[in-house]
Design a protein around this nucleic acid. Structure first.
Length: 418
RNA sequence: GUGGGUGUAGCUCAGUUGGUUAGAGCGCCGGAUUGUGGAUCCGGAGGUCGCGGGUUCGAAACCCGUCAUCCACCCCA
């Protein structure tokens, strides 16, 4: 048997209503905030991701699906959506259009990781990118959109954590201080963190090892090294969030895994998720457009993991879609009449079905019941000859004989009530 | 990449110190009801016991290897 690839899952028909509901809700909230959908390619040239995400990040170093095109060009399956969106923004000269530009995307992303609860190799993200303003109200718009969306889905126990990463100059001033501090605590740090002092010192701060947390308890905070402008930006973000009644937790240890982030960084987590507890996360990336060759353009955005949302979405939030009419036709004359009836019902917009394996009325009704149909049309040879059929209400069991030609109109009239 | 758990019917799982023909529940199909669903009863279909070696008179069970899967580390949405 040929099996699917590790970490790549089928979403079967039982699950797709849940996915559709999440995606439709996401689109609805994006619309409300004025974000427009962009559909970017599944794969891009490798250098786009290497340059934007950061050559030394785990994603680029060991998680990308990279392969040569036939002419040798190195291509990569997108591991996230921001790089492609920004590339499209630059390539189509969107910066020349009235700013700001607000985009959202929904689709699959690919990272070669060991699968685990809430982590797959092909996974799906809903993300937004707000390009062209450095106003802190844009940061809040993005955070509020994510928060309102997740709250609307009634996901349990959500927490918004927020931090400021400062400007690149702020970080340049802070990093030597942090490194100096960490070096005084080297003995108390885990092996990983000792390595990170050189490679990515910020990451030491959000290490989960208790000893590391204790050792860095009184580490200098980046937030106390913020420039006046960065501090003002952060303060405005926080006060605006408060004005909207969105509560948050300041987390000075919060950093982002991708190099392009600056200033506002945030993450929404839930205790209902396993170890991979981030539902959505994002932040500001003012330097990225310029880094990729565009005009300097401030921007802020987020990405949310749809698998993680799907795991937490309460089942009662998922609307159930049921077919309305089951055609139980049988016999030499009833069967062909049933096929014509199905077609007629569908043409007037009704959801109508039948099980062609069923040869007895009993089997038909069992299928009608199982499919959850509200009505069954009983159509045997007797009815076919009479040019009518028996409509059975599956709940009340009330039956009524209706001329075949009237049935589409009859059900359309009824369908306004169910 | 590292660690741990689990692999038996479509699904969820039993399976005794190794012992004859591998079971249950749910689901599926049929019958009881020759044209009326859900409940009940009866019957039926459905299994290379993940795969490959080994130990043994005998392996679903024990050993080795391998693969898959889940969870965790790491990392991240």
């Amino acid at each position: 048997m040929i099996k699917g690839i590790k970490g790549v899952k089928d979403i079967l028909p039982e699950e797709t209503p849940r996915w559709r509901f999440i995606e439709e809700t996401a689109r609805q909230w994006a619309d409300r905030y004025g974000f427009h959908e962009i559909r970017i390619p599944i794969f891009e040239v490798t250098t786009l991701f290497a340059r934007s995400i950061g050559a030394t990040t785990d994603i680029v170093e060991k998680e990308m699906y990279t392969f040569p095109d036939r002419d040798g060009t190195s291509l990569t399956l997108r591991p996230e959506g921001t790089a492609g969106t920004v590339r499209a923004f630059i390539e189509h000269h969107r910066g020349a259009d009235p700013l700001p530009q607000k985009y959202f995307y929904i689709g699959p992303m690919f990272r070669h990781e060991r699968p685990q609860a809430g982590r797959l190799r092909q996974f799906h993200q809903f993300g937004v990118e707000y390009l062209g303003t450095q106003d802190p109200k844009a940061d809040v718009d993005v955070i509020a959109l994510l928060w309102r969306f997740l709250s609307d889905l009634r996901l349990p126990d959500l927490t918004l954590e927020i931090n400021s990463l400062g400007t690149s100059t702020d970080r340049a001033a802070y990093l030597p201080v942090l490194v100096a501090f960490l070096q005084t605590r080297v003995g108390q740090l885990c092996e990983n963190c000792r390595r990170r002092i050189d490679t990515n010192p910020l990451r030491v701060l959000d290490c989960k090892v208790p000893a590391c947390r204790a050792a860095t308890e009184d580490a200098p905070h980046l937030t106390s090294y913020l420039s006046p402008e960065a501090k003002d930006h952060f303060d405005q973000v926080l006060s605006t969030l408060s004005a909207l009644g969105i509560s948050f937790r300041l987390n000075p240890r919060l950093v982002r895994g991708l190099d392009y982030y600056c200033l506002t960084a945030f993450e929404i987590t839930s205790s209902h998720l396993g170890a991979q507890n981030a539902v959505g996360a994002g932040g500001r990336y003012d330097g990225l457009v310029e880094l990729l060759g565009g005009q300097p353009t401030p921007a802020v955005g987020f990405a949310a993991g749809l698998e993680r949302i799907a795991m937490m979405l309460p089942s009662e939030r998922v609307p159930t879609l049921r077919p309305s009419v089951y055609v139980a036709s049988f016999g030499a004359e009833g069967s062909p009449a049933g096929v014509r009836l199905l077609d007629a019902l569908r043409q007037v917009g009704l959801s109508a079905l039948s099980d062609y394996r069923a040869t007895t009325l009993k089997a038909h009704l069992r299928q009608a019941d199982r499919a959850g149909c509200r009505f069954a049309v009983l159509l045997g040879d007797d009815e076919a000859r009479a040019g009518s059929a028996v409509v059975r209400d599956m709940e009340s069991k009330v039956q009524e004989t209706i001329p075949l030609t009237d049935l589409p109109r009859y059900f359309v009239a009824l369908s306004k009530n169910f």
